[in-house]
Design a protein around this nucleic acid. Structure first.
Lengths: 342, 342
DNA sequence: TTGAAAGCGATACCAC
DNA sequence: GTGGTATCGCTTTCAA
């Protein structure tokens, strides 16, 4: 069932039928009514390929999700996509998603752009030495970065949370509680967000004249065993930490598991603060969370990203838009004063 | 840069250029070489919308992911999609993904199908009273179910793991270890997979003449707190379980957290078996896993699903294909003999 | 082996 | 307010 058949059934031109269906003002109310009814009656649906070709717009946003060398699929991406997907449905856009190995990310963007499969793309997981903005410029695709590419803060559109500030505040809280040996279990620090978190952590220490201890700082894909193994190593080490600052709830669960297994009580014997992306399958409690945390909903970020891209960037690709999300610092049950003997 | 311009630059017809680029045999080797070189030189890329319109194929597979009323985004979907995405890249297909509230799932499938945005779709998370197969039939879209819709086992294409058998074996293992009070923390039992797991659990008990205890069976979205709260309630209850059978690693972590917090040792004082979907961010160890588990890689399922859909179902939509994945039962550190006083 | 021309199914400009 | 027609960019008969 196509436009032609529909217009024949109505004894109208394709033009008029198209206009009626797409809400153009110059169609008479009566004609529009007839058209709409007939369309529903005979089950007409416009072929989106044809429409895309005619309009030149794909009405789709591209996402390229990298799976790391370690085959790790970051659940944060999923939650971001859920938020974005909700907005796309509302705004009449589709999401075309490519899940590819790190090495094929550029090629995937190229394909999306040069084959006109998407009108714009989201850049996920920017790295400190990222070059995707250059490729996308060459291709002429509007894009929005979830996070920031160093050196491109002004010129590019992005949405990001204040990673450095959040981790500085979290570290300050631990310092205020008397902790001096604080471990940082970070994500991979070639990722921009992780580099920023580390700087926030270091800044808080430096501000109090404290130095960092490399033995207490780790970076890796944020799995549960990463948290567990790191905590085990460190707590069994020569000079164990009294507090952990962890970049992900998932790894924090690993830390908590080990602390419990060692017969220690979290929040009393060892403090833990984690960043909480508010992943829906890992709720951290409401008013009195399990973990003290810096919290910022990545799902909301995804939703806003989609809105900004479609409403601001597409109509005006040359004016970069920036949106800053400030993480909340929420006190839960996993932090308390330091009891360590000095 | 389009076909016309490219053909003019080569002084060839669009026909010949198109044929050369698409590997048709009748083009002379020399012509093809010229065409391919020029195409690369001037950076020609075919407009996929135009191609889709001309061929009538979208070269895309649709996925509709429901987010439940509780806003829960199941990480299993993500991992499945990662597997499928890998296969799509390899096979030259795109994935168009819709993330929508439960109530809009049907509409999303309708849109994908009737607007010709996808050549086929994957049905995620079948329920015991699912009707999506009927809608998709009406629309005439080939599809493959990840899981099974009751009553549609023969007639429809699906890929599934043997949920019932896996949970029966897991329960048998606990029974062999002497456990008699076994708790089942299941997913929502209007989901087909969860209903099957429950039947497997019950069958194992029934086979030994044991009856089920409603106080020890729960169902919910599989979050971490669900595991924790259920374990806390049950262990503090009148007649606590000595073992837990859990439908998800995430909830199992919650169970483990509570067991440790109560000063009990997992595997010695309380046994836990979980189903392990082999989520990449929740590795359960290698040869000696943290949790004894029934394991089946949902990522592999996604990959196979994509392959089956494209290679078997699209060319021959009327011959249903079925693929059964058997979960492994892997002994880890979380199970041991029952020490409960009878 | 190559080319001309007719679709594919919509949109949108220009007349009327 | 309605209609004719060119156009989007490619694939695919049909002829040569």
């Amino acid at each position: 069932m196509n436009l032609k058949q529909l217009s024949e059934a109505l004894s109208l031109s394709q033009t008029t039928v198209s206009r009626a269906l797409n809400g153009y003002p110059e169609v008479s109310a009566e004609t529009r009514k007839r058209v709409v009814e007939m369309a529903r009656k005979i089950g007409y649906a416009p072929n989106s390929q044809a429409r895309k070709l005619a309009t030149g717009r794909a009405m789709a946003i591209g996402h390229v999700i990298p799976v790391s060398q370690h085959e790790m699929m970051n659940p944060v991406f999923m939650e971001f996509i859920a938020g974005a997907g909700e907005a796309y449905s509302r705004l009449g856009y589709d999401m075309v998603l490519k899940v590819v190995p790190d090495a094929q990310v550029e090629g995937a963007y190229r394909e999306l752009a040069s084959l006109k499969k998407a009108d714009a793309v989201i850049v996920h997981g920017p790295r400190i030495h990222d070059t995707r903005h250059e490729i996308l410029d060459t291709l002429g695709v509007p894009f929005l970065i979830h996070g920031r590419i160093p050196g491109q803060e002004e010129a590019r559109s992005w949405i990001d949370m204040n990673n450095a500030h959040a981790f500085e505040r979290a570290t300050d809280l631990l310092l205020d509680l008397g902790h001096r040996r604080i471990a940082l279990l970070n994500g991979l620090e070639d990722m921009d967000f992780a580099a920023r978190r580390r700087r926030g952590f270091e800044k808080a220490l430096t501000n109090r004249g404290l130095s960092t201890d490399p033995a207490l700082m780790r970076q890796a894909d944020m799995t549960e065993p990463y948290g567990a193994e790191s905590a085990l190593d460190m707590l069994d080490g020569a000079n164990p930490p009294t507090a952990f600052l962890v970049s992900s709830m998932i790894s924090a669960l690993g830390v908590a598991r080990v602390i419990s297994q060692k017969g220690l009580q979290i929040g009393r014997d060892v403090s833990v603060i984690t960043h909480d992306d508010a992943l829906s399958f890992l709720p951290n409690g409401g008013d009195d969370p399990i973990f003290t945390c810096t919290r910022s909903s990545v799902r909301y970020a995804g939703q806003r990203a989609a809105e900004l891209l479609i409403e601001q960037i597409l109509p005006n690709p040359d004016v970069p838009v920036h949106e800053y999300l400030e993480a909340e610092l929420i006190i839960g049950q996993s932090t308390g004063p330091c009891h360590a003997t000095a």
